[in-house]
Structure formats: C-alpha cells, structure tokens
Design a protein around this nucleic acid. Structure first.
Lengths: 355, 355
DNA sequence: GATTCGACTCGAATCGATTCGATACTATCT
DNA sequence: AGATAGTATCGAATCGATTCGAGTCGAATC
C-alpha cells in the first residue's frame, strides 16, 4: 500500500495537531489532554504509524539504547566458555533495567582496523570489554574521543576504561594454600594463554613477567608466590578443555617421582581438560592427583564438583552493568573490586602418602 | 579540553571548506582534491574529530548497521545450547561482510510488551528470530509496519518472516529408519518442550498435534510416522541435559520388557541426558540401549560420538545472514530449505537379541 | 579564441524526531 | 473583577550529518 512510511508529522497533520504535541503524546513527557492524545493515537493507527523512528530520536536525544560488547575471536569459541556467558547474562540483566541492548562486536583475529571501522559506524552508548584480553586497542582512543564510556574486567589497561575485577593474585594463591594444607608439595600450574600467540609449553618466571594478558599473569604470579618460584608452570595453547588436556599431558608424562600431586588450573575448562588427561592415564582424582579450577562454573557434564575459585560470573556482569548505568547517568564511576573465594569440591584431597 | 564534541561543520570551517566537501572526504564518495582532503583530515585531527556521528548518518542514510537477534529466555540458558551458538556464529560471520552487528534482544519470560518497547526504541535494519520458538509475537506486526525485514528458522510462523529451515519431519524419521534397520522395534521418543509450559510427561498424538512449537511438533510427527503411532513419546521439561535425563527416566524405569531398546531424542543435549540416565541405571550404550540425538554438535565432553541428525548449525546461521543481506539489498528473499542428514556415531547398534 | 568537458566545490534541502520558550485558555483564589 | 496558577498547544530551532543540483575554473579540443 503506502510506499512511504508515515512520519510523526503526517500523524500530527491528520490528527489536526502540531508535531510537537504528537511527539509529547508518544514520549509521555508533558501534559496532553486525553481527547487530544486519543485523536493522535487514532490517527497513528489509521496511518500505520508505530511510534517515533529510533534513528531520529536517537540523534536528537543522544542516546542509542545499545552498548557494544566486545568479543574476542569467534562467538563459537567465546561462548563455549560458560563463564563468559554468565558474565554476559548478568550484564544483560542489569542493562535491561536502563533499558539498553547489547550489540555484539566480534573481533576478527588480526584486523583491528576493520573492527574500528565497524564501531565507528555504530551508534553506541558505551563499550564493554568483558570478553577480551589484549591490554590495548585503538578502540579506546576512538571511544574516548567520542566520549563513549568504557568498562572492562582488567583489560584494556587504560585509565579511561573503568574496571570491575577481582584480586586475581590472592584468589589463585588461595587455591595453592588449600592444597598446601592438604599436604601437597609438588604442585604444578596450568595457565591460560599468556598472549595472542600461545603454545603448550613449560614457561618460567620471565615468560610470566612478560605476559601480555594481565589476568593470566596475575594468577600465575599468585600461584608462584605460594607454591614457590620453582614450581612447574605450563601454558595452555587455548583456554578450553583441549588446551587443558594438552597442558596437563606435559606435566603428567614426567617420571612418576617428578609428577605433580596437584595441578592448579587457571580456569574450570582447563581443569576439566586436566581431569580428562588424568583419567586417560589411569590416575584417580583426588587419590593420585588433586585438581583445582578457577571461575566457579557449574559444569553439568562433570561427574563430580570441582574444587574451584568462585568469582561469581553473573555478579561480575551485573557489576559491569551497574557501572555502565552509573556512567550513562553522568556519575563519576569508580573501579570495583569483587570478592572471589575458594570453593572446595571433590577434586582435591590429601596428598598421596608416598610423598 | 573542548567540552563540546566537534562536528563535521567545525572541521569543515577550520579546513576552510564547506560541510558537504568535508562529508565527502570522510565517506569517500565523490571526487576531492588530494590537498583539500589532507586539509580536512588535518583539521579533524587538530580538533579531535574521529568521524561522522553514526546517529546522524544513520538518520540520513536509513541504515543503522545492526540487526536484532531475538533470544528466548536468559542468555545463560540460551547460550548453553551449542547449536544456538553455532547458528549465531555463522550469522555473525555472514553479517560481518555487510558489515552489520548483532544486537541481542533477550526476551523476558512473560513481558512481551516490554520487549516490544525495547525494540521500538532501537534502530535495527532487520530482525532475526534464530533462537526462539513461539509461533507468534507482536514484534512481527511492529517490524512489518517499520518495513524491517525479518528472518527466522521456523518461527514466528508468518508470511512476512522469511525462513531458513530443514525438513524436520523427514530428518527425524531418518533417525528412526536407522534404528529400524538395526532391528529395533521398541523405539521411544524424547521431545523438546512442546510449548511455553512444558512438563516431563508422557504425551499422545493429540498433545503433539496441538503443540505450540512447530519444530518439536514436526519432529515428533516425523518420529511417529516411522516408529508407529503407538510408540511412546515423552516431553522434556527443558531442552537441556537435565531435561533429557528426567524424560529418559520416565522411559527407562518401565519394566524391563516394556523398556525401549532405543531412544530418539530431539536434540543432542537431550540425548546427552538420556545417556546419563542410561549410565545411572547400569545400561550399556549401545548394547542395551541405542540413542540418537539431533543437531550434529560436537560435544567435547561426551566420551564417544553421538549418532545424530546433523543440521549444520553454522551453515544455517550463514544462510540466515545471506538472507538478511539479500533483503537489505532490496532483493525479494525466498525461503531456504537446507539439508540435514543422519550421521551415525557410536551410540546406536543392533537391537538386543532378547527381542 | 570559443567551446566543451571534467574535476572539484558549494549551498540548500532533507532525514524525523525533540525541546524550549511563548501563547492562549481555563480554573481558583481573594 | 483581577491577579495567579496551571494546563494544553504551537512554532521554531536543533540534533549532525548526506545528497543533489548548480556553479566555478582550468585544461583540452577544434
């Protein structure tokens, strides 16, 4: 029928009022006589007008109703991590109250310029870095120039990005402490990738100090602080089950007397991989090997509860959302430190007696 | 320093050109002398102007650079399904080429009006219903009035929504056929929820015919068409591992002579739950019980490959993306039917000989 | 030397709403 | 009756770009 979409002006004309009055009818701000409002709504219905064009109103009001959420790599991989999804869920919940939607920005592997161009063309009220690790990106400069507030969970590392984090160092050390008290003395560590180029390999203090990804570095340092600086550390090539399994293989295939009695993994998915590797080698958990994870996910496909550091993903997401809320409301926005605590499960036990 | 963000006009003035020329410099359409372009870019750099405001340009150009993706329920649950994520990944990949971002629209349980209001306020170029089941929603009318193209994977069931689907009926029947050929005669079915209110319970032909969710209905009918209309069918209360386990319990706890020798599940997650239930009862798979899934996911935590109907989730997402692309380019947009085929794994085998 | 053609630039109109100050009108109070 | 308040409506300016037709100028062509 009508090739042309009706505009507010058309509706106003038809209702015999001015555009400003019609606007007030739809936005609800300002007083309108009930009869007038009805007339406008009737005109709208007749013309098939379903409300103000969001493009125009966002220009005028300066609000787009959406925040950008950066996702590192492909969704297929990013969303395989239940922790990331939990954070996203919490974020969604909190944003829902503003209300504001989440625009997923999947970061192609290398082409930062492409991503930048995409973001430049998108109307966003804020930028959330909840699923990415690199400590810097040109997006920060861009968003800052646009006065778009940014929040993150540790990276990018920039004063203009407001952070919601946990004490990674202390949290990871707490896992070691737990094992120590159980009598373990040969404790090994499996880290998430330390940077964009990761490999399954033994790493040393220097590698760790130079690590690009901050959270992996802090956890590794927290591990070493309690386990001793000569404790073995292996980097996983990817932060998933397979990465954990491959990394654990490196540790478990050492001679039986050099094999660790406990492995501290930097994430629950890595820990799941460690458990797989142990099972494949006929090692019983926790009799022969204790394993700890990090994140505090519920993994319904594990046959027993994992000892892990619970960092309350959903709450982390909500904290991010509240921070965005506050920033959009013009409040100053301070960094947030959330608690994270060890949650003992069934994958840790006393060290094997044969020392 | 400038509390005011610079506009294109500011840049143009400073460079000593008109706003129209400056616009051309940034958009790249139309000829500009190299020296002029440099002057404009220099002025932009001095003022800290990082490019045209997306809000304004989207108003003028009529493109927002984002499509809405509806997600039923909480992200936490929706993204637990790897199939949904695979579709999303394929979609993202294809949209990246336009380029266009994906705006997640999480549907609160009951409050359709709230969702509608949110969508009404958002500038979207298209709407994708890839993760939702209800056959109708007021969103369709709204989007249609706005001339926002819509694509889906079976629902909402409306001629204005262009569909990418598979032959659910035939695909599910193929799974039964596979089991039939293996000698199974007592074959049972576990369906996804048939509607918004789902329960773990035996259902009959009428329940199925009345099912609200189309895909569940078609698969169940495909199952019955080959397995016989008296074959037992159980509805799962949720489309996840726990739902599958509970539904399987209902079937497996029947007397040993009435217990099915094969269970056809409507999704891989449900099948994983069926496997769990079998294991808990000491049933060996496939010796005592054969199990088939649906979707064709790789579930790294299953200890053996599942016999399943592969519906190529990523490709489904890409097809949705291509459809969106075409519609945005003004092309007519025809429905798409994708292939789906049985992929035998290690969870099906010959029927137990004791009949 | 007049004409034609391109390349480049500009002004004005437009996209579709929101907002602010001004105005008209109707009750309420004294 | 006049001042006061409050309600309802309107016109004009504005948000920040894009686009289109028209105009300028220099070089190439005949």
């Amino acid at each position: 029928m009508a090739g042309e979409r009706p505009t507010l002006r058309d509706v106003a004309t038809r209702a015999g009022v001015s555009a400003s009055t019609a606007s007030v009818v739809f936005s609800g701000r300002g007083p309108v006589a009930a009869t007038t409002a009805d007339r406008v709504r009737a005109a709208a219905a007749e013309l098939g007008y379903v409300g103000p064009d969001p493009r125009a109103s966002s220009l005028r009001q300066g609000r787009a109703g959406a925040v950008g959420v950066l996702v590192e790599g492909r969704l297929l991989h990013a969303f395989r991590d239940p922790f990331a999804v939990a954070v996203l869920d919490g974020l969604a919940h909190e944003l829902d109250a503003i209300p504001t939607g989440m625009l997923l920005l999947a970061q192609p592997p290398d082409d930062e310029q492409r991503l930048l161009a995409q973001v430049a063309g998108l109307a966003l009220d804020a930028l959330v870095f909840s699923m990415c690790r690199p400590p810097e990106t040109p997006l920060v400069d861009h968003a800052a120039a646009r006065h778009v507030p940014m929040v993150g969970t540790g990276s990018p590392l920039d004063p203009r990005v407001h952070q919601v984090r946990i004490d990674e160092h202390a949290a990871q050390a707490a896992a070691v402490e737990h094992l120590w008290q159980l009598g373990h003395r040969r404790i090994a560590h499996v880290t998430m990738p330390l940077g964009r180029l990761a490999d399954t390999r033994r790493i040393d203090l220097d590698d760790i100090a130079r690590a690009e990804y901050v959270d992996a570095r802090l956890r590794a340092q927290g591990f070493l602080a309690r386990a001793g600086r000569s404790a073995p550390v292996v980097e996983a090539a990817s932060a998933d089950v397979d990465g954990g399994r491959a990394a654990a293989a490196l540790l478990l295939d050492a001679g039986p007397d050099r094999r660790p009695t406990a492995i501290v993994a930097q994430s629950d998915l890595l820990a799941a991989g460690v458990l797989q590797a142990a099972t494949e080698r006929g090692l019983r958990v926790p009799e022969d090997l204790s394993v700890t994870g990090f994140d505090g996910l519920s993994l319904p496909w594990l046959d027993r509860p994992l000892t892990t550091v619970d960092q309350h993903g959903e709450e982390k997401g909500r904290a991010l959302g509240r921070l965005v809320s506050a920033l959009l409301a013009g409040q100053p926005g301070a960094d947030v430190l959330l608690p994270a605590e060890l949650r003992p499960g069934a994958t840790t036990g006393p060290a094997p007696s044969g020392r």
